[in-house]
Amino acid sequence: MENQIAIKAQHLKKIYRRGIEEIYAVNDISLDIQKGEYVSFIGPSGSGKTTLINILGCLDNPSSGKLSIGDKEIFSEGKTLSEKDLTKIRRELFGYIFQKFYLIPTLTVLENVLLPSTFYKKDGTENHASELLNMLGIDKRKNHLPGQLSGGEMQRVAIARALVNYPQILLADEPTGNLDSSRSHEISEILKDLNQHKELTIILVTHNMELARTADRVVELRDGVVKL
């Protein structure tokens, strides 16, 4: 089967100004991510990987360059999107996992998973939430509060929450940053499994080389550019 492009980035730049000094957090990066591909970004702190993933994930506008997701042109030269427009794209296409799990402590596991559907609901999310909890092996904990879960279980809940609205692309920013090696391995297996069996496009940012190597492609960044 011929691969389709999920994300196409062309000459992306992100410039921050500190007084008269210009800092290129992302400097002329072009890359294609295929549909169903699992890409990991690695690099030292300040290499621009988080800035890049924020732009790819429509959390931020680039200073210049073009970005398309599927057939949709998101950013092009001189065109930036409002916060509202970015939110529309995000909730339609993306799922996000962060280093901190950001589960609401007074909502149960199931309620936390269903939280995105409070704001934007696609058909069948309730059944889907239960299926996801089952798939991630935490269905027995669905009525527990986050405070009663281990770190690994909490990250699984966060993954289920990211997937509940059927995203096309999953962005994971340091998903194992708060977990020990055993729990990190579990999460790594889950991501790999989601990519292989659900054909989910995954973009991962990590410092963890072992986790990065589970991806189809590893992209190393340094000083805002892709290291070849």
Binding site: K84, T87, R90, I104, F119
Partner: peptide, 16 residues
Amino acid sequence: FQEIGILKSIGAMPWD
């Protein structure tokens, strides 16, 4: 503050 930002990243509009 962070949690509200995360809610927005998972689909909450400003009005939500």
